[in-house]
């Protein structure tokens, strides 16, 4: 797969992911009436679960993900899978966000320490558990 096509795939996935994030945030805020940072917390957990699910099912064997930038070189025998993996990186990568998370942390530093601790530790541990759950589930189903 050429670099150009992989960039197209990632742009398509990224646009879709960003729009989905926008709608998810709106829904969470409108339905739950919780403070705004909960919507980003929710989005990050769900996106981490999805990327664990997607990458484990697409890569089949536990490829060393530390070669993520070279994804296109590793999977060159299976063009469709490679395109899907890159689109998953685009979608889940754009669906979750770190910059708004940091901005929320910054606002919470000013006085709301309990919520700050909940957001920071909860996101870190929760996203890790979510990606692990997605990865294990996918390996159980597709193995």
């Amino acid at each position: 797969m050429t670099t150009f096509v992989s960039f197209l795939c990632i742009m398509f996935g990224g646009a879709l992911g960003a729009v989905c994030r926008y709608f998810t945030q709106e829904l969470v805020i409108r339905w739950t009436k919780l403070p705004g940072w909960v919507s980003i917390f929710f989005v990050n957990i769900v996106g981490s679960f999805l990327i664990g699910l997607a990458m484990a099912s697409l890569l089949q064997k536990t490829t060393d993900l530390q070669h993520l930038g070279r994804l296109s070189l590793e999977l060159h025998t299976r063009p469709l899978q490679e395109g899907l993996a890159i689109m998953a990186v685009g979608f889940c990568g754009a669906y979750t966000t770190f910059s708004s998370f940091s901005l929320d942390n910054y606002f919470l530093v000013h006085g709301k320490y309990v919520q700050l601790a909940l957001n920071m530790l909860g996101s870190l541990v929760g996203a890790f558990l979510a990606v692990w759950a997605g990865w294990s589930l996918s390996q159980m189903v597709f193995a």
Partner: peptide
């Protein structure tokens, strides 16, 4: 909407961050 929610939200990522952390632990 374009710069913060779209561009910066799409650039930064939490899922790859946690996926790569899992991968570091697996390694």
């Amino acid at each position: 909407a374009f710069v913060i929610t779209g561009f910066l939200g799409g650039t930064t990522t939490f899922s790859l961050f946690s996926l790569l952390s899992l991968n570091l632990i697996q390694a």
